[in-house]
């Protein structure tokens, strides 16, 4: 995987070959992971079913870490900034700067919401590390666990809306999983 992202790696080459398509890929990935995949299928479904086996990492019991770092990863992609394991950071030009150039208010809101998601997922992680395992968190009758999970879902859904606003601000058509593009309303009987 690392080789794919080196200066002449295959994925980097594919993204750089079509910069417009590359940016669309970033936005599609952020939106689809935030909404349909993470908030919906990976988090809310388990809560709805109250089934310990419906947690994302049911074998390793690392679900709280998966969810938290997925949230961090989405933010990293947007801000173009990554904190290495040794604590040092690597950063460069970012999608955030691109959005800020055309719609600073959208960028500010999205950054705040990405922070809020990481914070909500962080509360979930802290609770798990404090003894409430994730499979207990989604159990029937665990009101505090339910509130933690629902808080994370709500934050991820909120940031999806702002990702859509960023898409609009950049004048792109991007289909997010579970939120396909609205058809041209002018061509529809009203």
């Amino acid at each position: 995987m690392a080789a794919n992202w080196t200066d002449d790696g295959a994925v980097r080459a594919a993204l750089m070959a079509d910069p417009e398509g590359g940016i669309s890929s970033i936005l599609t990935g952020m939106g689809s992971l935030s909404y349909g995949e993470l908030a919906g299928e990976r988090i809310k479904l388990g809560l709805m079913l109250h089934d310990p086996e419906e947690e994302h990492d049911c074998f390793s019991d690392m679900t709280h870490l998966s969810h938290y770092y997925d949230g961090v990863g989405i933010r990293n992609v947007y801000t173009g900034r990554y904190t290495r394991v040794d604590g040092s950071t690597v950063e460069g030009p970012s999608l955030s700067q691109l959005v800020a150039a055309v719609a600073p208010e959208v960028d500010a809101q999205l950054r705040a919401e990405l922070d809020a998601s990481v914070a909500a997922l962080g509360e979930m992680k802290a609770a798990a590390e404090g003894g409430m395992a994730y499979d207990q968190m989604l159990g029937l009758g665990n009101e505090r666990g339910k509130a933690l999970i629902e808080g994370a879902v709500a934050a991820l859904v909120a940031q999806t809306r702002s990702i859509e606003r960023a898409v609009a601000a950049l004048g792109r058509e991007v289909e997010l999983e579970g939120s396909d593009s609205l058809d041209n309303p002018n061509a529809v009987f009203q």
Binding site: Y35, G36, A39, G40, E41, K44, L45, M48, V153, V157, G178
Partner: peptide, 8 residues
């Protein structure tokens, strides 16, 4: 969101 859960 309900439709997304239904899809799963």
């Amino acid at each position: 969101m309900q439709a997304t859960l239904g899809e799963a």
